[in-house]
Design a protein around this nucleic acid. Structure first.
Length: 882
RNA sequence: GGGUCAUUAACUCAGUUGGUUUAGAGUGUUACCUUGACAGGGUAGAAGUCACUGGUUCGAAUCCAGUAUGACCCACCA
């Protein structure tokens, strides 16, 4: 069989993915083995793969494949999130294109459209993950709106309501006028921008005097119900108890005093609009002020806007300002830079708005989750510094607004039966609701009227926040809410690792920990690996809006999934941002090709029943130790989630130790056969290398694995066994390092003198080091030394080089460039003398000798002795030349 | 306004509790060699006052304080 010299990923990747799928290697069922579980951070069902997904799913796949090789029962649960606000926005936009207005549709009609959309585009992203090589258990694919998942959400809502933790309240919430829904505090981003600050004077009732206030939002003047000053502010003491006239609407409102007002800011005089500002609302509550809401749900002014009614708030702002100017009471306009809340999803400017919403009281829920992370380290965050962020958020947590004025999501299971504020019941289904409603009526009303039936009940029209379903994800994918004692949840939960971006630490990670303790009394996962953001070369965040994110599938097409995976992981320390550069994928691709060709070389050898050369024997013994050393380092890195370090170690092992050294050492002469003992050992080594590499480059490694020899499906690499740790022969490794320096020396001389490798040379050694001779056969082979001899005295008229204090002589015919030799020796001497000085400086410092640990002093003395010995040989050589 | 993190070679990053050579890796770069594994491979080399200023110490890239620059997070000053 001839093997192509170029590795072609496109020919290989789909083949092996199908093969693994066909043999169910991604699928997991509970058994007696130790489980290793990851639940995927479910991407938006209608989303497409971007670089962030590629990064964190590659990491998850690395972890899961390694666990599988370690013989654990590896289970990676994939799925998607219904992402209520984002998906609904897309559906609404699509309907609009078709000339359909959402408001003309019934709830069921709209949901039908949304489901159609989900079925059409949903899951595209999961197909893309397959291209990346992700070994998810696809039989377990979940969607946050699956019937069982929704049931769990509803059950949890009812449970929390019955515990008194969920309540309905008329509160100031974040209103997104574009999506026309409320948002939780976490969904609001504060962005800096420069607006106008308008100074407006209000007339004091019955007097020809004015007070001036400053506002960025003149349109809300129409909702003013007071003017407020600081009671300490002497400039305004004379105004106490007086009223002012609100411009335009000419409402008479009181001047009140509250210490909230900052004397320094603006005019020191604050207009109070309780309906449109959180602080104003609080002040209003303290002073029993009227609340006048001037805005409609879409952000336009309502009838309180008078002749500005119907105008959008932004338009109205200018118009009102103009009107104020005409009235001659706009005294000043200046630029003002401040932070404005915007919607995370729609980017619309958020309006604080009073409305009836559902809230979850977080105060007590959060307690076990704080303890778990910060005190017990039951859940560990990587990198650890996120503990601080976590603490800050958790300790300052406020009640969670969980209702959304959306249709796409789990409908809130509250049923209203009357007009009163408390005429509702919360139940998992309508039957329970009827029962509960009747019970409640029997208690509250004296005369029993006719019993309530289904038609008397109206279900709350709001849906739940998306995160109210995804916070259950690690539990609900195993049906642990509905059936808390089922076999799966008991086996797979808590999961092992969670890999996600720090941007959803609050949205999701923290809330999952809360949910875990509340509903299972157990953490949802042991470790959280927070990846960095993927940035471009100019350090900009990769985002759709900037258009700087490369097309994931195109990258895979060009470099192969393995190449892209390697490219992404080559430089991504946990929690640090990743500067993505396509060149790294190119490096990944070249690496794949390199491994492919090393395999080609081995496969091309003819094997014969001949004796094993000493050089091969020792080379193999060395590599086996080197491999073990690397394996130990790798295990350590894995334990610390230093995934890119794992990859770099593996990369060096394969390109340096394996390809550049081992293969060169055991390579038979051209067109001569290799002995079977060496061949078999090299194959075994190659197989172990493939195992280390498989988590990173699953396709390439499986391809080579299957090329090495015929394998049954059970013998596939993906389900083979991770290499065992053995004792490391450190002496052998050290001896080899020494030998490799000798070989380097020979190569340097060959290069300087232009001696072709095919011309054998002699070499003799003055072995003051008493160096190990274990690798002499290797030195002879790789240096092409015809005769290696040990001598007691310097060899005149030869080229020399030194390793430590050993001297090596290569006799030369013809003249030697004495000048160059002297120069070289002098340079080396100077360096060594300089080095000696720095060591001696330390040693002559009494306080160092007295203060430093014995071990350190000893090592410094050894350095001194080594340097002195080397200087001696250098000086002697120089003297010989001159 | 509060907080977290970063700043080491041209680039991307290591450098673990201060002491294994006068700071490392991968990529890139330079010179030469090589067309019998390798969209290349090999060999050798160049390249860094470890952001800055002080301090602690026998000894600091590493610990402390401050400064500068950048990034991110949190926060209801109109």
């Amino acid at each position: 069989m001839s093997i192509p010299s170029k590795y072609d990923a496109s020919q290989v990747e789909d083949k092996w993915y199908d093969y693994w799928m066909k043999h169910d290697y991604f699928h997991s069922e509970p058994d007696e083995r130790e489980p290793y579980t990851i639940v995927i951070p479910p991407p938006n069902v209608t989303g497409v793969l971007h670089m962030g997904h590629m990064l964190n799913n590659t990491i998850q796949d690395v972890l899961i494949r390694r666990a599988r090789l370690q013989g654990k029962n590896a289970c990676w649960v994939p799925g998607t999130d219904h992402a209520s606000i984002a998906t609904e926005a897309k559906v609404v936009a699509k309907l609009k294109e078709q000339g359909i207005n959402k408001n003309d549709l019934t709830r069921d009609e709209f949901l039908k459209h949304a489901w159609d959309w989900t079925e059409e585009y949903g899951g595209v992203i999961l197909e893309q993950l397959k291209k990346l090589g992700c070994s998810c258990d696809w039989q377990r694919t979940k969607f946050t709106m699956d019937e069982d998942m929704s049931e769990a959400v509803i059950k949890v809502f009812v449970d929390l309501y019955n515990k008194g933790l969920i309540y309905r309240g008329y509160r100031m919430v974040n209103w997104d006028p574009e999506a026309q829904t409320t948002l939780s505090d976490e969904e609001v981003n504060h962005v800096e921008r420069t607006d106008k600050l308008y100074y407006v004077k209000y007339q004091i009732e019955g007097e020809n005097e004015y007070v001036t206030i400053a506002t960025t939002r003149p349109e809300t003047i129409l909702g003013d119900t007071a003017i407020c000053v600081n009671p300490e502010d002497e400039r305004f003491t004379h105004l106490k108890g007086k009223n002012v006239i609100v411009p335009i609407c000419n409402r008479v409102v009181p001047i009140i005093q509250d210490s909230y007002v900052d004397v320094e800011f603006g005019t020191g005089c604050l207009k109070i609009t309780p309906a449109h500002d959180v602080n104003d609302k609080e002040i209003g509550d303290r002073h029993n002020l009227e609340v006048i809401d001037v805005l409609n749900a879409d952000g336009s002014l309502n009838s309180f806007g008078m002749h500005h009614e119907g105008k959008d708030r932004v338009v109205a702002r200018k118009d009102v300002a103009n009107e104020l100017e005409k009235l001659g009471i706009l005294t000043k306009v200046e630029d003002h830079t401040h932070k404005v809340g915007t919607s995370e999803r729609t980017k619309a400017v958020i309006e604080p708005r009073l409305s009836d919403q559902w809230f979850l009281n977080m105060q007590d829920l959060v307690k076990p989750a704080i303890k778990a992370v910060l005190e017990d380290e039951d859940v560990k965050l990587f990198p650890k510094r996120f503990n601080n962020t976590y603490r800050h958020w958790m300790e300052n947590i406020r009640d969670w607004n969980i209702s959304r004025q959306l249709l796409w999501g789990q409908q809130i299971p509250a049923y209203y039966y009357g007009d009163g504020k408390n005429d509702f019941v919360v139940a998992e289904n309508i039957e329970d609701a009827i029962k509960l409603a009747n019970e409640k009526l029997a208690v509250t009303s004296s005369g029993v009227e006719k019993p309530i039936t289904a038609s008397d009940l109206r279900q709350d029209t709001d849906a739940l926040d998306t995160w109210f379903s995804s916070w259950l994800w690690p539990i609900s994918v195993f049906d642990g809410i509905r059936h808390p004692e089922n076999k799966e949840i008991n086996y797979y939960y808590p999961t092992n690792d969670l890999v996600t971006g720090p941007d959803i630490l609050f949205f999701w990670v923290a809330r999952m920990i809360v949910a875990g303790y509340e509903f299972r009394n157990k953490k949802p996962f042991n470790n959280v690996y927070l990846t960095g953001l993927v940035r471009d070369k100019q350090r900009r965040k990769m985002s759709k809006s900037l258009g700087n994110s490369p097309d994931a599938l195109k990258l895979i097409e060009e470099y192969g999934a393995d190449g892209v995976r390697v490219g992404l992981l080559l430089s991504s320390a946990a929690g640090n941002d990743l500067m993505f550069d396509e060149d790294l994928c190119q490096q990944g691709k070249a690496f794949a090709n390199k491994i492919w060709n090393s395999f080609r070389l081995i496969k091309g050898w003819e094997v014969a029943d001949i004796s094993q050369p000493e050089s091969s024997r020792v080379a193999i013994a060395w590599f086996e130790s080197k491999f073990q050393e690397t394996l130990a380092t790798i295990e350590d890195h894995y334990g610390k989630y230093r995934i890119s370090d794992v990859l770099m170690e593996t990369y060096k092992l394969i390109t340096n130790d394996f390809s550049s050294w081992l293969l060169e050492m055991v390579k038979p002469e051209y067109q001569k056969p290799i002995d079977s003992k060496t061949y078999n050992a090299v194959i075994a080594i190659l197989e172990n290398n493939l195992k280390l590499l498989h988590p990173f480059m699953p396709f390439l490694t499986e391809e080579i694995w299957q090329h090495i020899t015929e394998r049954t499906p059970e013998e596939a690499l993906i389900v083979s066994k991770w290499p065992e740790s053995k004792v490391i022969d450190t002496k052998l490794i050290k001896d080899f390092d020494f030998a490799s320096e000798v070989i380097s020396g020979i190569r340097t001389i060959r290069k300087q003198k232009n001696i072709a490798f095919k011309d054998a040379i002699e070499m003799s050694v003055l072995d003051s080091e008493k160096a190990s001779r274990a690798f002499d056969s290797v030195i002879t082979k790789l240096g092409n030394i015809s005769e290696l001899t040990y001598t007691d005295e310097k060899l005149e008229g030869a080229l020399t080089f030194r390793v430590k204090s050993n001297e090596y002589f290569v006799p030369m015919q013809g003249s030697i460039d004495v000048e160059a030799e002297i120069k070289k020796l002098t340079e080396e001497l100077n360096y060594t003398v300089g080095f000696l000085k720095s060591v001696q400086k330390k040693l002559s410092n009494e306080r160092f000798v007295a203060g430093a640990p014995e071990q350190v002093v000893a090592s410094e003395k050894k350095k001194e002795a080594d340097a002195l010995a080397k200087i001696e040989t250098l000086k002697a050589s120089l003297a010989g030349l001159e």
